[in-house]
């Protein structure tokens, strides 16, 4: 698989390194060159300094032949835009956004975009660790005044 990982924070570096270990080709994009130090020794892919929604940057990262795009920046909105670009503009098969805001995550899931709702996942994990019943998310507003 040829994958583009956007954002080289802890999560981005982790998934990029893991993908390399699995034998996939990976390009990591981050605005800050210093972020690439987080990549593990097992990382064998390439790195590009650039912005998540800059089409030129995505093209130079090879998005036109990418099988997957993983958006892991700290900005939910950047991730959501990157995923939409990947899917709609470049026909990337799998495009997944890390989204911290659980309401935003479920709204975009309903719009047909894949998200990793990280806050919900961590909340669920804590709940599970405590042996509690799973939480029922409530992401839709009440209509009417």
């Amino acid at each position: 698989m040829y994958a583009i990982v956007i954002g080289c924070g802890r999560a981005g570096a982790e998934i990029a390194s893991r993908m390399c270990e699995q034998g996939h080709s990976v390009v990591v994009i981050d605005r800050d060159r210093a972020a690439f130090h987080r990549l593990s020794d097992s990382f064998s892919g390439t790195t590009i300094v650039g912005h998540a929604i800059d089409e030129d940057c995505l093209v130079s990262a090879g998005i036109e032949r990418a099988d997957a795009l993983i958006a892991t920046t700290y900005g939910d909105n950047s991730n959501l835009i990157a995923v939409q670009l990947a899917r709609k503009r470049f026909n990337v098969q799998r495009a997944i956004a890390r989204v911290k805001d659980s309401v935003r995550a479920s709204a975009f899931e309903r719009l047909g975009f894949e998200t990793i709702p990280s806050t919900t996942i961590v909340g669920d994990a804590f709940e599970q660790a405590l042996g509690w019943e799973p939480h029922q998310p409530n992401g839709s507003p009440e209509n009417g005044s």
Partner: peptide
């Protein structure tokens, strides 16, 4: 911020069910 503006609009449309 353009990214914020776009996502805010999309989120607003989704949360208001297009209203």
């Amino acid at each position: 911020d353009d990214e914020d503006n776009i996502v805010i609009c999309q989120l607003g449309e989704a949360l208001s069910e297009g209203r």
